Amino acid sequence: MKKTNSYRNALVLVLACGFGAVAQAEAPAKSATPAATSKKPSLDRSGKARKGKASYYGKQFNGRKMADGTPFDPESNVAASRTLPLGTKAQVTNLENGKSEVVEIRDRGPYVDGRIVDVSPKVADKLDMKEDGVVAVEVKPIELPEGGSTAQISSGR
């Protein structure tokens, strides 16, 4: 009986050490993921034009609250940016066809690498990007908000 208990204790000890090593190996990966996800880009008040990819809001976002607290309206000229301040007016130009539209940044996103703006379906129609879904764009700030008011950005030409 003593031998059986010794084997059982040894087995429990080995299993506990094994599970501890697995949990320890997983811990860094779990703690690194939220830190990477929660890293917020700083707001860009430079007024510089940026190039990247644009996508547009799907139907599931209709009526949902945006970052500025207003409900999303697919028939509005609104957009989401991770870096431009809320309230910024910007010109979005489809680099494939040259079509442009002025939008107001009222939401945060997109959260996909390489994408710099999400636009409403109305804007996507005007930019002729709905068929492709994602297109290369230039986003050029026109007005930046300043404590409740907006500041004009020089054309830089």
Rank of each mutant, 00 (worst) to 15 (best):
K2W: 08
K2Y: 07
N5W: 14
S6Q: 15
R8P: 01
N9P: 01
A10T: 14
L11T: 14
V12E: 03
L13R: 11
G18H: 02
G18I: 02
F19T: 09
G20H: 07
A21Q: 10
V22G: 03
V22Y: 12
A23R: 10
A23D: 00
A23T: 08
A27P: 04
A32Y: 11
T33V: 13
T33W: 12
T33G: 00
T33P: 00
P34C: 05
A35Y: 05
A36R: 15
T37F: 14
S38G: 11
K40Q: 15
K40G: 03
K40W: 07
P41E: 05
P41D: 00
L43Y: 13
L43C: 02
D44Y: 08
D44H: 02
R45I: 12
K48N: 15
A49E: 12
R50N: 11
R50M: 11
K51I: 08
G52T: 10
K53A: 11
A54V: 05
A54K: 06
A54I: 03
Y56S: 01
Y56W: 15
Q60T: 12
Q60Y: 12
F61C: 01
F61G: 02
N62L: 05
G63Q: 10
G63M: 08
R64I: 01
K65W: 07
A67Q: 09
D68R: 03
D68E: 11
D68I: 09
G69Q: 07
T70W: 06
T70A: 12
T70S: 15
F72L: 15
D73P: 01
S76R: 05
S76E: 12
S76L: 01
V78K: 12
A79S: 09
A79I: 01
A79Y: 00
R82H: 01
R82K: 15
P85Q: 08
L86H: 02
G87C: 04
Q91D: 09
V92C: 04
T93E: 09
N94M: 11
N94I: 07
N94E: 09
L95D: 05
N97E: 00
G98K: 06
V102M: 06
V103I: 13
V103F: 04
I105A: 00
I105E: 00
I105H: 00
I105R: 00
R106W: 03
D107R: 06
D107A: 04
R108L: 12
P110G: 04
P110S: 02
D113T: 12
G114N: 07
I116K: 07
I116W: 14
I116V: 13
V117W: 05
V117Q: 03
D118T: 05
D118E: 04
V119W: 06
S120L: 03
S120Y: 01
V123H: 04
V123A: 11
A124I: 05
D125T: 14
K126H: 13
L127D: 02
L127R: 03
D128C: 04
K130F: 06
G133I: 04
V135G: 09
V135N: 11
A136G: 09
A136C: 02
V137H: 03
V137M: 04
V137K: 06
E138L: 03
E138Y: 03
E138G: 03
I142L: 15
E143N: 10
L144Y: 14
L144D: 05
P145N: 00
A151W: 07
A151F: 02
A151N: 11
I153W: 06
S155E: 13
G156M: 09
R157L: 10
